[in-house]
Amino acid sequence: MTGALVAHQITVRYDRQRVLDRVDLRIAAGETVGLRGPSGSGKSTLARVLALLRAPDSGHVTLDGQRLPGVRHRLPAAVRTRVAILFQSPRAATDPRLSLADVIAEPLRATGTPRERARARASELADLVGLTPDLLARRPHAVSDGQLQRACLARALVHRPAYLLCDEATAMLDASTQAHLAAVVTDYQRRHGAGVLLVTHDASLMARWATRVVELPAGGRPTD
C-alpha cells in the first residue's frame, strides 16, 4: 500500500457552530491535492487537523495506514515531524526574538540535533528557499513578510516531512517568489515522494499547481 495522510469523517465545532461535518480527505504520497471553498468553509481547520495540531470533535486521522491516537506532543516526535504545515501569515508563526537562522533550525533543536549539524542544515535550506546570507542573522522585524515566509518554508522542510500542507502559504507573495517557492516544494516532492495539500483562493495557481482539486462547500462536506 502506498502512503497517504487521510482524514476520516472529521467533525469540528467552534462554540456551537459546526465548521466541518464528517469530512473525508485523502492526500496520497506524491500527489498535490488542491482544496478550495468559500471563506469560512473550514479549509484551515481541516488543514490544522491533518497537521496534527488540532483534535477533531469526532473522526480521526491516519498516517500511512496507522490510526493516530492524539495530536501535538501526545504523539512521538518521529510521527509528528512527518507532517509539516505552512501558514499564510509568517509574522504570527515565528518567534520575534529568534534570528532567521534560529527560526529555521528551531524544530531541529527541539528534537535534540547537535548545534553544528542544525546550523549547517539551516543554511543549506536557506539557500534552497532563496534567502541570502545577510538575512539569516536578522530577526523577523528587520525582514519583509516575503523574506520571513521563505524562512518558514525552510523550517517546514527541516525534518524532511512526508506531507506538506500549504494553507494560503503564497497568498502574500509576489509572483516570482510564489513561483520560486512552488518550484522548491515541487522539487522537494519529486525527490522525497511527498504528498502536498494546497489550500488557495487563487484559481490560476490552483490550475497550475494542483494535480487534483477537492471542493469544500460552506458547512463542510466535500465532494471529491
Binding site: 532563496g130 541570502t132 546570507p133 545577510d134 538575512l135 509576489d174 509572483a175 516570482s176 517568489t177 510564489q178 513561483a179 520560486h180 512552488a182 518550484a183 487563487d202 490560476s204 495557481l205 490550475a207 497550475r208 499547481w209
Partner: peptide, 17 residues
Amino acid sequence: ALPERAFRPVPGHPPML
C-alpha cells in the same frame, strides 16, 4: 512568473540590499 503565464520565477536569487 504568473501562474497563468509561464509560472517561471525570475532566475537567480533576490539581491542583497
